[in-house]
Design a binder for these strands. Structure first.
Length: 697
DNA sequence: TCCCATCAGAAGTAT
DNA sequence: ACTTCTGATGGGAGG
C-alpha cells in the first residue's frame, strides 16, 4: 500500500481522510492571504553601539579601561545582506487576514539594569533570584481593541534540592557573569524588538554563561544541578530577561538573519526565533493572540525524518505527538502544533524554518541553520512505520531569500564529489603541510593566485622569554583533567581548564596557558588545543574587493580555535623597515592598539605578554596571513603561552568570536598603530560593516 | 566507530 | 500537569 502514502493534494483512496480524523473545516484552499512585505523599517539600531575602547594588550590603557580581549568585538553583522535584513523582519501585514505582528511570549521579563545584584532570596536550586527583574505589562496591540496587555506569569518557586550549598556556587558564577556585563548591553536588550546587536549580545552572554557553568561543574564533580549547562544557562537568561526578542511573531525576526547558525535549541529560544525549548513547532495560540485560531510561526526540522525533497527549497515535515515513550506509539492528533500548521496552511502565513543538521565537528551535537521563510503548501496523513497516523506538511521556501541551507548542500556535494567546485586553482595550497588540505579558489576574476610565499604551519625563530609563571610543566600522563586541581597548567589558568570538552574557550581570560614541551601530557591533551593543527576545511578565496581572503567549509562554533599566526618572528627594527616600504600587510604586531568592546569590563585582568611580538608572514606563513581586516570581525586573537624548559613560548592563536556559518569570510581586527611609524600610512578599509572606522593600518 | 537507549530537564500551553 | 525533544552519556553491536 505504499503507493497510497502521501502523494499530492488529494488523499488517495484508502488513506486516512483527515477531515474525518480531525474536526476541522475543509482544506486546501491554497490562498496566500498576505500581501507582500511592506514595512522595511528599523533596519538597524542606531543607538545600539557600545562604546569603542582602544586597548593594546601590552598597554598603555586608557584610564578606567581594563585591558581585555573580548569575546565580542562588534556585534554588527559583517554580512552586508541588506536584502536579508529586510526579509528578516517583515512583519505580518495589515489588510487581509490581520495577524498581530507579534505577541508576547508567556513569561517575559526585562532586567532593570540591576541584574545580578547581591540581593538574594532563598530560591535556590541553581535558580537565580529574579527580584531584579520586573514583570512587564505589554501593550500588545493597541489598535485592535484587544490590547489590554498580558501580565507575565510569575514562575513558581521550586523546591530546594539536596546539596544546596554547592548550587549556590553556580548562582555565584552566574551572578558574577551578569555583574560583569556592561550596563549598556541591557539598554539594547530592553528594546522589545530585537536588533542585530541584541541578538549578538544575547548569544554572546549565553555562550559565556553556558561554558562557564560547564567549566565549574566539571571542575567540581560533586556539584549538584548543573548537568545541562545549556539548559541551566538558558534558564538564567530567561529568568533575567536577557534575550533579544520578547514577542512571538510571524515572519522574520529582527536581528536574526537568514543563514545564521546556532548550536543549542536554547539559542533559538533566546533570540526569539523559536520559543519552545524542545518542541519542534512553535505557534501563536488562540489565547495569546487575538487570533481565533492558532497559527504556526516556526518549525525546527531536525532531520529525524528524512528530507525527501528533491531540492533544498521544499521540505516535508512531520507533525508532533504520537510518540509517548511510556504509553507507546499512537496516532497523532490534530492539536497543538499540528493544528497550528493546518491553520497556517489555510491562512497562508509565513513560517520560519530552522534546519537541524549533524555537526560533523561534534558528532553528538547538532547545528541549527535558519533557512528563512516558507509557506505551507499541503498537508496529509500518513501511516508511519509503527502503523500509526502521522501528519505530514509540505513547505516551500519563499523565493528571493539569501542562500542558507543551500550553501550547506553545495558543500556536501563538493565533499561527495558529486558536484565539482568551480574556480579551484589548487586543491591544497599547503602541499600537505597541514593535516587538512586548504583549497585555493577564485570564482571572481582571472587572478591565478596570491604572490609567492612558502607555506609553513608554524612559527619560526621563536624566542623563548622569561617565564611568567614557571611550573616546570605538568605530569598528567593521561592528559590534563579538569578535576585535577594539582595540575600546574590548570592552576596557571586560574584553576580551570580553559578549553571545554569540545575544544572551545571556556573563559574570557586574556592569556591562555597551554601545556608545552615541558609537560608530560600527550599531544591530544585538552590543554593543547592550539597545537593540533587545522580542524576546519579552510579555503583561500578571491574576494570581491579585498584581495585574497579566508573562509571555512565547516561551521565554526564561537570560542573555537581556528589557527595560529605562523611566520617568522622578527624584531622591532625590521618592522619599521617594512613599515617604511608600506609592506607590512603580512605582519602581526602585538603592540598595536586593538579596539575592544567593553562587554565584560569587570571580568578582565591585564594580559601578561612577556614581550612585544612581531611575526612576519610575508615570505613564509600559514592560512592566517590571508585573514583580512574587519572593523566588525568574527575572529580574535589571544596570546597562548606554552611553557618550554622554564621559559615561555608565546604564540598567537585565533578563535571564533561568534558562530560562523560556512563560507563566511573569516576576519579579525588588525588594530591600529599610534603613532604611525615612519612612512606608515593608514589604509582604507573595505570591510563594509556598519561600524567601519574607515581605515586601518 | 557508530547507533541506540537512557535520563533529567526547560518553556509554554492546556487544564 | 502535560507535552515536547534535547544533549550528554553509557552500553552494545559491528568493523
Amino acid at each position: 500500500m505504499e503507493h497510497n502514502l502521501g502523494q499530492g493534494n488529494v488523499p488517495p483512496p484508502g488513506s486516512i481522510d483527515k477531515s474525518r480524523v480531525l474536526n476541522v473545516k475543509p482544506l486546501r484552499t491554497l490562498v496566500p492571504v498576505f500581501p507582500s512585505p511592506s514595512n522595511p523599517s528599523s533596519s538597524s539600531n542606531p543607538q545600539g553601539g557600545a562604546p569603542f575602547v582602544c586597548v593594546s594588550p601590552s598597554g598603555p590603557f586608557p584610564s578606567g579601561v581594563a585591558p581585555f580581549y573580548p569575546f565580542f568585538i562588534s556585534p554588527e553583522s559583517q554580512r552586508l545582506s541588506e536584502q536579508n535584513a529586510q526579509t528578516a523582519q517583515t512583519p505580518a501585514p495589515q489588510r487581509v487576514g490581520p495577524i498581530s505582528a507579534a505577541v508576547p511570549i508567556n513569561s517575559f521579563r526585562t532586567p532593570n539594569g540591576d541584574v545580578g545584584s547581591s540581593r538574594k532570596n532563598s530560591r535556590t536550586r541553581g535558580q537565580l533570584t529574579d527580584e531584579d527583574a520586573y514583570a512587564e505589562v505589554q501593550d500588545v496591540d493597541a489598535e485592535d481593541g484587544t490590547g489590554e496587555g498580558r501580565r507575565t506569569k510569575q514562575k513558581k518557586p521550586r523546591g530546594r534540592r539536596p546539596g544546596g550549598t554547592a548550587v549556590v556556587d553556580l548562582d555565584q558564577v552566574a551572578n558574577d557573569i551578569l555583574n560583569s556585563i556592561n550596563p549598556i548591553v541591557f539598554d539594547v536588550l530592553k528594546q522589545p524588538d530585537g536588533s542585530r546587536d541584541a541578538v549578538t549580545y544575547t548569544l554572546m552572554i549565553y555562550e559565556v554563561m553556558r561554558r562557564k557553568l560547564g567549566q565549574v561543574e566539571e571542575t567540581s564533580r560533586d556539584i549538584a544541578g548543573a548537568k545541562r549547562p545549556d539548559l541551566k544557562a538558558g534558564n538564567i537568561m530567561m529568568t533575567k530577561g536577557i534575550r533579544a526578542n520578547s514577542k512571538k511573531r510571524i515572519g522574520g525576526v529582527p536581528g536574526v538573519e537568514i543563514g545564521d547558525i546556532f548550536f543549542f535549541r536554547f539559542e533559538l529560544c533566546l533570540v526569539g526565533l523559536h520559543s519552545p525549548s524542545m518542541a519542534g513547532i512553535d505557534y501563536i495560540g488562540s489565547k495569546t493572540s487575538q487570533e481565533e485560531e492558532p497559527l504556526a510561526v516556526s518549525i525546527v526540522s531536525s532531520g529525524g525524518y528524512e528530507d525527501n525533497a528533491e531540492d533544498g527549497d521544499v521540505l516535508i515535515y512531520s507533525g508532533q505527538g504520537g510518540a509517548n515513550r511510556e504509553k507507546g506509539a499512537s496516532d497523532q492528533k490534530l492539536e497543538r502544533g499540528n493544528l497550528a500548521l493546518e491553520k497556517s496552511l489555510h491562512r497562508g502565513n509565513d513560517v520560519r524554518v530552522i534546519k537541524g543538521l549533524r555537526d560533523e565537528a561534534h558528532p553528538t551535537g547538532k547545528v541549527y541553520v535558519y533557512d528563512g521563510l516558507y509557506k505551507i503548501q499541503d498537508s496529509w496523513v500518513e501511516k508511519a512505520k509503527s502503523g500509526f497516523n502521522v501528519f505530514k506538511y509540505k513547505l516551500a521556501r519563499l523565493p528571493g531569500q539569501p542562500a542558507a541551507y543551500m550553501i550547506w548542500k553545495s558543500i556536501q556535494q563538493w565533499t561527495d564529489k558529486t558536484v565539482t567546485r568551480t574556480g579551484v586553482i589548487l586543491p591544497d595550497l599547503t602541499s600537505g603541510a597541514e593535516n587538512l588540505p586548504v583549497c585555493l579558489v577564485n570564482d571572481v576574476d582571472n587572478e591565478k593566485g596570491p604572490a609567492y610565499f612558502t607555506y609553513s604551519p608554524s612559527v619560526k625563530n621563536l624566542k623563548p622569554t622569561a617565564p611568567l609563571e614557571s611550573s616546570g610543566g605538568c605530569s598528567c600522563t593521561g592528559g590534563c583533567q579538569a578535576i585535577n586541581h594539582n595540575c600546574p597548567c590548570i592552576q596557571k589558568n586560574g584553576g580551570y581548564l580553559q578549553y571545554s570538552a569540545n575544544g572551545m574557550l571556556a573563559d574570557l581570560k586574556s592569556v591562555i596557558y597551554e601545556c608545552g614541551p615541558s609537560c608530560q601530557c600527550p599531544p591530544n591533551c585538552r590543554n593543547r588545543i592550539s597545537q593540533g593543527g587545522l580542524k576546519f576545511r579552510l579555503e583561500v578565496f578571491k574576494t570581491k574587493d579585498k584581495g585574497w581572503g579566508l573562509r571555512s567549509w565547516d561551521p565554526i562554533r564561537a570560542g573555537t580555535f581556528i589557527c595560529e599566526y605562523a611566520g617568522e618572528v622578527i624584531d622591532n627594527a625590521k618592522v619599521d623597515e617594512f613599515s617604511s616600504e608600506n609592506e607590512d600587510d603580512y605582519i602581526f604586531d602585538s603592540t598595536r592598539i586593538y579596539p575592544q568592546l567593553e562587554i565584560f569590563p569587570a571580568d578582565t585582568e591585564a594580559p601578561k605578554i612577556p614581550s612585544p611580538l612581531y611575526i612576519s608572514a610575508k615570505n613564509e606563513g600559514n592560512v592566517a596571513r590571508f585573514m583580512n581586516h574587519s572593523c566588525s570581525p568574527n575572529v580574535l586573537w589571544r596570546p597562548v603561552i606554552r611553557e618550554n624548559k622554564n621559559e615561555s613560548d608565546l604564540h598567537i592563536a585565533f578563535y571564533a568570536i561568534r558562530h560562523i556559518p560556512p563560507m563566511m569570510e573569516l576576519t579579525y581586527d588588525y588594530g591600529t598603530v599610534l603613532p604611525l611609524k615612519g612612512g606608515q600610512k593608514k589604509k582604507k578599509c573595505f570591510c563594509g560593516s556598519a561600524k567601519c572606522r574607515g581605515y586601518f593600518c
